[in-house]
Design a protein around this nucleic acid. Sequence first.
DNA 1: ATAAATATCCTAATTAATAGGGATTGCAAA
DNA 2: TTTGCAATCCCTATTAATTAGGATATTTAT
Lengths: 200, 200
Amino acid sequence: MKSEYQNSWKVYIISEHFLLRLGLKTILEELGVKAEIQEISEWREWTKILNEAAFVIIDMESIPEKERLNFDSLPDKFPKCKVFLLGNGTENKVLLKNFISVKDNQQEILDKFQRFFIEQPDEDEMPKESSVLSEREIEVLKEVSMGYSNKEIADRLFISINTVITHRKNITEKLEIKTIAGLTVYALMNKLIRPEDSQK
Amino acid sequence: MKSEYQNSWKVYIISEHFLLRLGLKTILEELGVKAEIQEISEWREWTKILNEAAFVIIDMESIPEKERLNFDSLPDKFPKCKVFLLGNGTENKVLLKNFISVKDNQQEILDKFQRFFIEQPDEDEMPKESSVLSEREIEVLKEVSMGYSNKEIADRLFISINTVITHRKNITEKLEIKTIAGLTVYALMNKLIRPEDSQK
DNA sequence: ATAAATATCCTAATTAATAGGGATTGCAAA
DNA sequence: TTTGCAATCCCTATTAATTAGGATATTTAT
């Protein structure tokens, strides 16, 4: 963790299950995370801590189905902090860096915590998290991830191939992902495309 | 369905649930599949029909957890026929062509049946289903899906770029997936790579 | 033993993508 | 009202990927 932040950093653990909170807290402590750790057993309190928290760990099972946040809404709801989600094992998001399942084994969980809380990115890499793509860029990204060539995308979106190329330039700059494979992973993980949308 | 096979083709539906079997059978009939349809309520009988079946539809819930086949073992267990799996909605394989979930909606199910049973490939395209990639081809596919260029893959695997290109040629022929995006989706869905393996 | 599959390497031609530059328009916020 | 952003379009090089032919040696399976 970056030293200049250590005193102000707070990590909130939101879960109604004591044992889970304890386990999560223990992991953080064993990893040497020196930030202040706060436990919250009532999910509704999350609104109170939005401005204080640098990290939030949320047990999704502790939030009623209809209130449950989804991955897309995270940047909106928690613009100022990084969110780590804990699921029940039925999600197909188990491979995201900021997601663990209660069914994951010890090694997987520790690895993900390590990556998320210890291997912090530098400041100049931070825009990657916060910057979002424009509507049109998302359109183009989806087309790319579905396997269409620049020419095909141009035809499908009724724009010139130059525009497609420009959009792709901006996309790779914003996301810092420069390969088709990487963009495809990004699109899948962010539910921009479904696997069956893939053009063969 | 190819006419020369119609008389010999048999489709087996393996499920302990009558209503499911009936529904599946009805779909096949409505799609105009003329092959003989056999229902099997006891999963253990599958061994008896291995040499007769051209298609097998298996309700995974009807098979005890420990006996349950996984996707990787399908080509071994059913070398001579094509297998269509029916799951309970908790799998993250719902997007595979030969897989439906009971939670899928009508349109999705019909589409997948259409694709699987009606849009039969020609003989020379058949290897797609039965043939699996070789060890080396899987290695190359993983590299491609992680975003490495042919040159990078050549360096990483200590082979010439020509060999990489040849492997990729064979991969795209076998899988009938010719785009990097499509191969990446395939690799993710088949757990050949994890999203965080992706090279940016 | 022989056929099939695998793994390796090659050339040449074509197509696609990327990295640099540009530019214009419209719209919304400062 | 000016400033910035989004979306559109254009260009030249360069690099990468794809396609379509080859070839050879080694395993693997029948």
